[in-house]
Design a protein around this nucleic acid. Structure first.
Lengths: 158, 158
DNA sequence: CTCCATCAGTTTGGGGCCTAATTATAAGGG
DNA sequence: CCCTTATAATTAGGCCCCAAACTGATGGAG
C-alpha cells in the first residue's frame, strides 16, 4: 500500500477537466480521516463507548448543565435522528438520563449521570493520550502547518 | 464554527500527558475527512450510487476482469462482510452480477454489467470534477505539502 | 379563541461499517 | 483416504448516519 495515495501517471490525459493534485488531496484526506477515526474507536473500545457516544458525553460535560438533543445535534453537526439513536445507547449504558423540560413540553433535557460524568473524563484522557502517541511522526511546525491547511480547506468545504 | 478547530487555552493544564497540537490535528483531520466524504456523497447523489458503491465499480473497472469479493475487500480496506452488503445493493441496481468461480467453488466472481461499466466512468468523472472544484482554495504547492504530510501520518497510522 | 405554521423529538426505512458465527469448499499431513 | 486446518462468502446483530414522515406542543395571525 503506497502512502500517500497517488494517481496514475496518465491521470490528466484520462480526466482532462480534473486536477491530479486535487484528487490526491481528496483521496488522502478521506483515507487519513478514516484512519484517525479508527484509532479513536480502537482506543475507546475498552471503555465500551463509541466515538459518537464519547463526543456526546464531552458536549454535556462542557455544558455543565442538562441540554436538549437539539443542542447536541448542532454541536455534533449531525441529524437529530442520529442523536436520538446515540442517546438511546448511552441511556442503556446508564451514562445519561432523559428528563422532560420543565416549561416547554416539546423538549427533553439530557442529564449526565454520575457514571456518565466520570466516563466523559476517562474518554477525553484516553483519546488525547492516543492522539499524542500516534501524531509523533509529525514535528510541531508540521502539525501547525497541517492544521492551517485543513482549516483553509474546511472554510471552502463547509 | 471556527476553522480550523482549536483546543481551549488551558488544554495543557487539564491534560498534562496530551499534546494540544496533536489533538488539533486529529480533530481537524476527522472533520475534514468527513466534509470530503460528504461532498463526494453529494456529487454522487444524482447518479444514485453511494461512495462505497462507486469505489467498488472503479476497482472492477480497473481490474478489467471479474474479481472475487475478497479482492475488493482488500483493495477497499474494508471487511468482507461489508463488501457483501455493498455488492447486494449494486446487484439490485443492476450494475454488477455475481457468478460462481469456474474451478474454486468457494469463490464468487463479480462481473461488471454494461450499465455498471458506464456508471463506473460517470462516477469517476463526476467525483474528479467535484474535487478540482472545491480544492480551489489551496494552491498547487499547498496541495503537494498537504499530501506529503498526510502520507507521513498514514505511515504512522496504518 | 381558533387555526395553522413551526418546532422538538421520535420513528421508519435504507445504507455503510464492524465482529463473530456459520456454511461450504479446498488443501495438506498422517 | 481421512481428518484437521485454512479459506471464501454469507448471515446475524449492533452502531452510526441520513431523509422523510409522524406526533405533540407552541405561539402568532386573524
Amino acid at each position: 500500500m503506497e502512502m500517500p495515495i497517488r494517481v496514475s501517471r496518465d491521470f490528466a490525459a484520462i480526466y482532462p477537466d480534473a486536477s491530479a493534485s486535487a484528487t490526491e488531496c481528496a483521496m488522502n484526506l478521506a483515507r487519513t480521516g478514516e484512519l484517525v477515526l479508527g484509532r479513536v474507536a480502537l482506543a475507546l473500545q475498552p471503555l465500551e463507548v463509541s466515538p459518537a457516544g464519547g463526543l456526546v458525553l464531552g458536549i454535556l460535560k462542557d455544558a455543565c448543565r442538562p441540554c436538549p438533543p437539539n443542542y447536541i445535534s448542532e454541536r455534533l453537526i449531525v441529524s437529530r435522528a442520529t442523536v436520538t439513536g446515540v442517546l438511546d445507547t448511552l441511556v442503556k449504558r446508564g451514562l445519561v438520563r432523559r428528563e422532560p423540560h420543565p416549561t416547554d413540553r416539546r423538549m427533553v433535557l439530557v442529564h449526565l449521570t454520575k457514571a456518565g460524568s466520570r466516563m466523559a473524563d476517562r474518554v477525553r484522557r484516553t483519546v488525547h493520550r492516543g492522539e499524542a502517541d500516534w501524531m509523533g511522526s509529525l514535528s510541531e511546525p508540521e502539525r501547525a502547518r497541517l492544521t492551517e491547511l485543513l482549516g483553509k480547506l474546511q472554510r471552502a468545504l463547509a
